[in-house]
Design a protein around this nucleic acid. Structure first.
Length: 474
RNA sequence: GGUGCUGUGGCCAAGUGGUAAGGCAAAGGUCUGCAAAACCUUGAUUCACCCGUUCAAAUCGGGUCAGCACCUCCA
């Protein structure tokens, strides 16, 4: 398959370091609050990537960190530690907050059919790993101590900027009002590996280290956790586009300086979901969570469908109009699948199935073109073949897309069956329908429409068919 | 200010040199007392704009404009 690699700005053929396994790392959430659906877009598209790699026959080991230690802090920052802020807001301890929102995160993932990574590691579990890395970086001259903190010295690198050609002179440091430049840094881009001094003297979580009691910098987390579980070479590193600089740039700097060789081959960055007003955030406008969508009557899977209709490297605008659009399309798709007969007794036409699979693979091989993969679903429905083959193809593609295609269709069939049974068991409704039929026969259409309205008020929708009037509860 | 990404019909979107897929919505039709559903039909002489390369450009080059992102915690 071909994947766009942010590090080279090109689509490249994906080849893993070891033929039998793909090592994949994902920057996980900071668990200080619920995830909004924009956060989840990244995890959703990464899930598609992981499942497609498995579909192609690779073994995948995927690792995700959980950021449960505040990392906003720097000497130059007036902002608040997010974990502490969350804890204060809810009158809980930092660890309670982390546990609660970690569970909430994976609940949301489950609703969106996002598979849990093979390894999920909280950042606070790996302090020892970070210390080992920092010690080596200090010993080899890539790091220095200043003002009580340990910094990475970016001037020691031949090439620091990976994802874009920044010019250090033009970097806007301290752009936000009230932010001061950290005078301990030797270079503008140097970053903290270990803090002992911070404005946040009440930092809840602190650990002993060779440099004093303190806590790790943000970037070291991902390097340490990745190396702990995946070793010194990585095939794919995933994350939201906003992390490319400085977070991922810094990860590369410290990891490769520590290892002494290239660390990760492919960088997979997902673009943001925006609202019509711009970037989605937790503080501005409506806080769009999976639960909120559910409370408005949307099945979370509709959001997955909505995301898959677009491409992961495109900005996507969320609006209820767009979600409704996706909901209508998904509903129709499931209805069409439900109309296929799973008990027709046909046997799968292997040649036809392979032709359909080739279209799906062609779409996905081209840098995960999921919107074309969705089109491939319509191709299946239109294909000149039997239902068994169609259903086999849909089930096959849904191993990657995870849109509940067959389950959704089965549920729909079941619902229709129940409605039919309920129809026979309700004498009141049957009586009214008979009355309406009589009124229609007498051409008393006003009365017929009145009865239909009465049924509607009871939550019963009727449909005239050539076989008579059917009804269902809505 | 610097850096990067994006710009295709009402909406989502495919298409990376050969003359604009697909889906949703809409309109018209069939059917119906009327609806609903289903089925059929219709849609960009044009791909943000300008200039250029070419027999040929949505696709390549240059410029302009607009949106978004990063440079500050953020997916």
């Amino acid at each position: 398959m071909y994947l766009y690699n942010s590090a080279t700005h090109k689509k490249e053929e994906f080849v893993p370091n070891h033929p039998d396994i793909v090592k994949m790392y994902t920057c996980g959430p900071t668990v200080y609050h619920f995830a909004h659906i924009g956060n989840l877009r990244s995890y959703l598209m990464e899930d598609v990537l992981e499942k497609y790699l498995r579909y192609l026959g690779y073994n995948v080991k995927r690792v995700m960190n959980i950021t449960d230690v505040g990392h906003l802090t720097s000497d130059a920052d007036e902002g608040e530690d997010k974990m502490l802020k969350g804890a204060r807001r809810e009158h809980k301890s930092v660890m309670e907050i982390a546990g609660y929102y970690t569970d909430a995160f994976f609940d949301d993932c489950k609703k969106l059919n996002i598979k849990r990574p093979d390894v999920v590691e909280p950042a606070t579990n790996c302090i020892g790993e970070y210390i080992i890395i920092i010690e080596k970086l200090l010993a080899t001259g890539y790091a220095y101590q200043a003002g009580g903190n340990v910094y990475f010295d970016t001037s020691k690198l031949e090439k620091y900027y990976i994802f874009n050609e920044h010019d250090e002179e033009n970097l806007a440091v301290g752009v936000r009002e009230g932010v001061e430049e950290d005078l301990n840094k030797h270079n503008k881009n140097d970053f903290v590996l270990w803090f002992t001094k911070s404005k946040f003297e009440d930092q809840a979580l602190k650990w002993d280290s060779p440099w004093g009691v303190g806590y790790p910098g943000w970037h070291i987390e991902c390097s340490g956790i990745s190396m702990k579980h995946l070793g010194g070479d990585l095939d794919i590193h995933c994350g939201g586009i906003d992390n490319a600089f400085p977070h991922h740039t810094n990860e590369i700097a410290q990891s490769e300086s520590y290892l002494g060789h290239k660390w990760c081959n492919f960088w997979f960055h997902v673009l943001h979901l925006n609202t019509e007003d711009g970037k989605m955030s937790k503080s501005k406008g409506e806080f769009l969570t999976v639960s909120l969508l559910e409370s408005k009557g949307y099945d979370p899977i509709l959001y997955r469908f909505f995301c898959l209709q677009s491409h992961y490297r495109k900005n996507l605008v969320f609006s209820y109009e767009n979600l409704d659009n996706a909901a209508a399309a998904y509903g129709k798709l499931i209805e069409k699948i439900a109309a296929l007969d799973p008990d027709a007794g046909d046997s799968v036409d292997q040649a036809a199935l392979e032709a359909l699979q080739a279209r799906f693979r062609k779409a996905m091989d081209a840098d995960l073109n999921t919107s074309l993969a969705i089109t491939a679903l319509y191709d299946v429905l239109k294909a000149k073949t039997n239902d068994a083959t169609r259903l086999a193809a849909l089930a096959d593609f849904d191993r990657v897309l995870s849109l509940n295609l067959l389950d959704g269709a089965a549920k729909l069939r079941e619902k229709a069956k129940q409605a039919e049974e309920a129809e026979e068991r309700d004498p009141v409704v049957d009586g009214l329908i008979a009355d309406r039929a009589a009124a229609k026969k007498a051409k008393n259409f006003a009365e017929a429409d009145r009865i239909r309205d009465e049924l509607k008020a009871m939550g019963v929708e009727i449909i005239d068919t050539p076989q008579g009037t059917k009804w269902k509860r809505v």
